[in-house]
């Protein structure tokens, strides 16, 4: 369970919301409204005042790296720090699970040992998604997870997100795809670029 109390993100009005296990919150708004900033603040990658609680534990009660193992931010531009994807995967990744996840996104395991430079943008984004799910973080923050994908891969990623929700993970989804939000989200949070108005920043049912 994810509970956010008066989280101060950028110049936005303090945000409060709550997600039960298996629920998906869609975050919408124009570019520059602070969607990415919100996800980064939840993962404690940027300083932000307010309380964020996951399964009864507040952000600051846990060491930062422990927190980010529970609250996983997935960037729209996945980062690599090695020549092949495998070098940027956890060394002790359980093989069976890794293969199952790759398979579910229609990724050939041999891609793990190709040079990153020859992989397509969509392959990189899907590989990064697999990497983020390997250690089963209870809260998954997805920043435009299907931005670089063709319709078929997009459907597979959505299927995997749905599977994560069914197995009890909380998902916060930033997306510009109205139909996708309709398919996945249980609630919406609309951020606006203008000065906060009454009602903005409130969570509403779709």
């Amino acid at each position: 369970m994810l509970r956010v109390e008066r989280l101060q993100v950028g110049h936005l009005k303090p945000l409060s919301f709550e997600l039960s296990d298996g629920e998906c919150l869609a975050v919408e708004g124009p570019s520059g409204a602070g969607k990415t900033l919100l996800l980064r603040a939840l993962a404690d990658l940027d300083p932000a005042a307010g309380r964020v609680v996951v399964d009864g534990q507040e952000r600051n009660e846990l060491p930062a790296h422990e927190w980010r193992r529970r609250v996983r931010y997935c960037s729209p531009e996945p980062a690599w720090w090695s020549d092949t994807p495998r070098g940027s995967f956890p060394v002790n990744a359980p093989t069976a699970k890794l293969e199952r996840l790759l398979q579910s996104l229609d990724l050939d395991p041999r891609l793990l040992d190709r040079p990153i430079a020859v992989l397509s943008t969509g392959e990189r984004q899907r590989l990064a998604f697999v990497r983020a799910l390997l250690d089963e973080p209870p809260v998954i923050l997805l920043d435009e997870p299907t931005g670089a994908l063709d319709p078929q891969s997009k459907a597979l990623v959505e299927e995997l997100i749905r599977f994560q929700l069914l197995s009890g993970h909380c998902v916060v989804l930033v997306s510009h795809d109205e139909a996708q939000i309709g398919r996945l989200a249980d609630a919406r949070l609309v951020l606006s670029k203008e000065k906060p108005t009454p009602g903005a920043g409130a969570v509403s049912a779709p």
Binding site: L45, Y73, S75, W80
Partner: peptide, 22 residues
Amino acid sequence: RERNAIEGRLALGAPRFEALSG
């Protein structure tokens, strides 16, 4: 320069010395 990669490692739960090992 490697901000993106470092934050990627931090986001996956690496402590700072591991994330900045490069």
